[in-house]
Structure formats: C-alpha cells, structure tokens
Design a protein around this nucleic acid. Structure first.
Lengths: 349, 349
DNA sequence: CTGAAAGCGCTTACAG
DNA sequence: CTGAAAGCGCTTACAG
C-alpha cells in the first residue's frame, strides 16, 4: 500500500542500490542522478521504512526508556531532561512505564529488542538479581538511581543519602531537634536511602532521641494522612521531614486544615524540589534534586556506551543535591556554600 | 552477536518455521515439540527481533506520539492518559516533541513510518495545510486539539471556547465586571479559542466595556509580568482571567509580591486545572480540562481507526470542560449543574 | 558511478 | 504436524 524504494528506483530509472545511496548521501552518485532521485522521492512522497532500515543497519536511532510510573512532576521532569538530550543527539524515545510491576518491566524489555539502540532504566524496586537475569549484555543500558553495584552497567544516581543528611543538619542548626519523618515505600531504593540519611544524621546529632517515622508512599494523600497524625499527637515534633515534596505538600494541607501554623508550630520540609514546591504557601524548603539533569546525563552516558561499550566500567555518576531554603522551615536564609538562597516563593534569578 | 530464531531452530532440531509457530502460539504444533522449543528459547534467552517481526507482520505494536513540548503538567498528564490506555491495549509509545518547530514535526513524522501503527498528534500551531501535506492517508492518525476540520482525520478536542464562556459568566455573576485577560501565544489554536470565548462572552454581558488583553505565552513568567502590569494600572480590573493555570499562578505571585489581595482586590482565575492549581494560595478557580482523559480517548479512538480505517469519518469528539470554583475568585461556592464544588485547596471527594 | 545479488531476522502460504 | 521457500524493504560488499 505504501510506496517503497523499488517504486522510486523504477520511476527514476535506476537501481534500488542507487536510490539508497542517493538518499543516504553517499558520495558515489552523480550529482545529476542524485538530484533526479531526490526529486522523484519528493514527488512520490517517499519515506523509507524504518523497520527495514533498522533490520539491516542494526541501528534504530531510538532509546528505550523504562520508568516505574508516569505520575507526577518527578517523571515529567525526568522525561523532559531525557528528551532534550535525545533531540540533540537525533534520537527518539520508546517509552514504557511498568507501574511498579517487575513482570511488566520484563515484558517491556523483551519488546524493545530490535527496536532500540540502548536502554535507560529507572526501577526503584528492581534488585541486582533482576538486572542480572533480565539485562542482556548485548544491549547497552544505563541505570537511573539503581543501588550501587546492582549491575555491571553504567549508572547515574542522585545522592539521596547525602541530601537527607544535609536537610537534617539544616533543621537541627535552626533549632529543630525533634524531627519526624514521612517515609516512602520501603521497597523503593530512593526512599530507603533518604530514610537512612535521616536516621543516621539525626542519631549523630541527637543520640537519645527516637524519631517518629510515619509510613508513606510518595503520594500526596499519604502525606496528608501523616499531617493528620502529627496534629493528633500529644507531643508534637517541631519539624516534619517528608521523603518527597508531594507528601510534604499533603502534610502542609493537613496542618493548614487543622490550624497548625507552619513554620511557627512545626516546620515542614520535602525532597525533590519539584516545580510546585515554589508555589505552595509557605513555600517549601526542600532538597533540590537535579531531575532533568538526571535524565540528560543518563542519556548522554548511554550514547557514549553505545558508541564505545568499553566505557561502561566504573561509570557510576552521583549527582549532588542542594538544599533550597524557603519559608516552610522557618529558618533565616543563611547563605553559605551548601545553601541556595531563594526568597519565599521567589523566582529563580 | 545476539541470538536469532535460526539458532533456536538448530538447538531444538526443528525448522525456523516451527519455532515461529511455537512461539506465536499457533495451534498446529505438537505440544511436545512446542514445549521443547519454548524450553530452548528460555535456555538461550531468546527474544525475537522487533524490526524483523514488524517488517513482515506490518505491525509494530507501537503508537507514535507527537507533542509540541515536554514542559509542564499539561503534557505529563496527557502522556499519562495516553500511556494508561496504551498499556491496556498492549501498545508502546514512541515519543517525539517538536518544541513548536514544524520542521521538527515533519522530521519526526518521517522517522515514524515503519515504526508505528498509528499517530497521535498534538500540534497547536499546525495548520490544515500542514496536515494535508505531511500526513499520508496510509498511516492512521488522530489529532488532539486541532482546529475543527483541519484534516480528514479523527480529532479529539477540548471545548476551549465553551470553557472560557463558562468562566466569564461565572465571574460576571459574582460581580466581577471589569475582567482582564492574559492570552496565550496567538499562533496557538487552544489559546485563540480561549481568547475568543472570553471576548464574545464578555462583550455579550458588557457591550460597552473594552477589556484589557495582556499578551502571554502560557508560561509562568509571562503571567508574572501580566500581574505586575495589573499592579501598575491606574484603574485596575476586578478580575484577571489567564488563558492557562501556569500564567494565573505567575500572576498570583506578582500580586502577592505587590501586596494586592486576591480575591478581595482582584480575582485571579486560570484554565486547565493542572494538579498544582489546588496547592497554591488562594487555591485557583479554573476551568477543568480532562487532560488525562484527552489522552486516553485519543488513544482509544486511534485504536479503533487502526482496526477499521472506515471509522475515521465524522469522528470529532469534543470533551466538556468544567468550572472548578476555589478561593481565588472570591465567589461563594454555588452548587449547580455547571459547577463542581471543591473546598479551598480541598481534596477531591 | 552503477547494478545484481546476498542478506538482515522474521512470518506465512504452499506442499507434503 | 512440519519444512522449504519466498518475501517484507532496505543496505552494502562485490563486480564491472
């Protein structure tokens, strides 16, 4: 039904080989024939068939992107970063979200063979064993936020632990000693690292304090419930550190609803620095994760692995987080090397 | 380098035809041979090559998604809706964002041939001419938010005009007569329709009033600037209607910075009902667009067109918008058939 | 500079 | 039930 290279060749009075060479800009074609072929291609509105090209060239110009979820600003920012870098490289994106189900990831991995040149994988719940079983060495891959050493693949990760430590120290320095935590899913690697950073930093500063850790799932309603829980407490913490911004925002809403003042009565801080963090009131103090960068860096690394598979080794890149102090923690906005200062709800400079 | 059907056939002692039949579950294979083949496939960790399969079956199980941009919650919600429906259908998504550049869209369209079974296209700046030139009838396509009659393709669109009319009437009913508007890009079809709805509804209600229309670009900073402009005005409007939520939020920030009270001094309302609209203070009154539904419906329509190309005709689906009254317009939350009532910053029931 | 031919990895009539 | 063969639409040595 659709027009093929054969028809172009026929119309131009040349062989398909010559058409192929002309359209791919190979040098060994007379300018005259080349021009004629290109003209015929235009007239016939010919476009080469991608699958056929890929089959013989072994290149697809597309990258498979496996994400755990499609929800919220974290993922849209990540995709944006990946997309921006991909455009520059002339690469396209084959997207797949597995909704936390590892068997979905397996299926997606399968369907991607022969359709992508490489894989970008973010699966906070995947284990080293899973990677070992499912990832063939034949296909270049870069992991995003995987546990260190999970696989022999390059990995780009955020310093989840370090960011949590930074935040605890900041809260403590500004006089908040009784800090509660709202955790993320405990089968989620990012969540676990953030919790670990919180625990270790706090117990170093306040060895005798047993912090309250409330269970959350990274979604806003669980943060809302945590906020309600805090309201009901006989002895309230003076700060709530949520493992991500969406839960911190939920917490903020619950406290506002109950008339608890933030930051006067209790500080509330988050993690990620999603765009919305600037817009809530009080504006959210948080740990800024360079989400779009994470995507960009991962894609660039993948491209270099595709070009030279030897580059895989030792390629674990850790992206630094940054404390962003806004209104919700009630701290004066100290300026030092660890703090990026933004006015409450302020606009980036 | 990677293992092929030939090697499986060899290892299982059968022909490639039989392997193909076994792995595709065709009936005409002995259970015994089938089992043996499947076992060999597992041992060899064989996965069929996608491009080769697509070349012969003419099916790719993937849908091309052309988006103008990758920025903001509108697009992440849209992708989420598309993705959810695609998963159910067992389809994958080949993503491409054209960043408003039509030549990018052309290039993306080209690369998609042979790689997708159909196209979902959202291009607020594309004209009927563009669609006519670039879209081959051979490839099923569904347009999202295209001008009515732009192309002979099925189209799923939001009632941009109607939503703007609803909002103007609501503001007017609650006593706001001097309404200013912050427009979107004037080469953007959605933006143009929203502006048209605003102008027509307002001039019907206040024939003598010449509303102020400020130029925006759908991004927050342009809303911020519009807010500053309002602040500086000698004679302030009593409401600002921004063509989307991000600009309304920018406007809110500018007014807050200048000490202008919302909604007491001026009402501010938006359009889209992105998730963030609930979280700003005052919470944003807005026109709710079923963004994720838009994606879901578009994908489902595309699937039906792929299955039966005759279904294209007359398939222009218009999705209804809904007024969402929150704190930023200062209206009492009247309950009637046109209003969905939510508490200020409230959580959906 | 150009063409005939082989081959990429599959699927599917067609025989048997 | 199984296999040999043709073919999907390209690209690329290999000749000339």
């Amino acid at each position: 039904m659709s027009i093929t290279i054969k028809e172009v060749a026929l119309a131009a009075g040349v062989s398909v080989a010559t058409v192929s060479r002309a359209m791919n800009g190979h040098a060994n074609v007379t300018p005259a024939t080349s021009a004629r072929i290109l003209e015929v291609m235009r007239e016939l509105r010919y476009t080469p068939h991608g699958a056929a090209q890929s089959l013989v060239t072994r290149r697809t110009q597309t990258i498979g992107v496996l994400l755990p979820d499609m929800h919220g600003e974290f993922f849209s920012e990540l995709i944006r970063g990946i997309d921006a870098a991909a455009r520059i490289q002339g690469l396209h994106l084959l997207l797949s979200s597995s909704h936390g189900d590892l068997s979905d990831t397996t299926a997606a991995l399968k369907m991607m063979r022969g359709r992508v040149d490489g894989l970008l994988i973010m699966s906070p719940t995947a284990t080293a064993q899973f990677y070992a079983e499912q990832l063939h060495e034949s296909l270049p891959a870069v992991l995003i936020n995987a546990p260190a050493g999970a696989a022999p693949h390059a990995c780009v990760a955020v310093d989840n632990y370090g960011g949590a430590v930074q935040m605890v120290r900041h809260l403590h320095r500004s006089g908040r000693k009784r800090i509660a935590f709202v955790s993320g899913p405990n089968n989620n690697h990012d969540a676990v690292e953030r919790l670990r950073g919180f625990r270790e930093a706090l117990s170093a500063l306040e060895p005798d304090y047993q912090p309250l850790v409330m269970h959350g799932d990274f979604n806003e309603p669980s943060g809302f419930r945590a906020g309600q829980q805090v309201v009901a407490l006989a002895e309230r913490p003076d700060a709530v550190f949520a493992a991500n911004d969406m839960m911190a925002i939920g917490c903020l809403l619950a406290l506002a609803e109950a008339g608890v003042r933030v930051p006067e009565d209790v500080a509330v801080v988050g993690y990620d620095n999603i765009p919305t963090a600037r817009f809530v009131r009080p504006a959210l103090t948080t740990v800024s994760v360079p989400i779009a960068d994470l995507g960009t860096v991962a894609l660039e690394r993948l491209v270099s692995v595709i070009e030279d598979p030897a580059k895989v080794q030792g390629q674990e890149t850790l992206l630094r987080t940054q404390l962003v102090v806004r209104g919700s923690c009630g701290a004066s906005r100290v300026s030092n090397s660890n703090l990026r200062v933004l006015g409450s709800g302020g606009r980036p400079a």
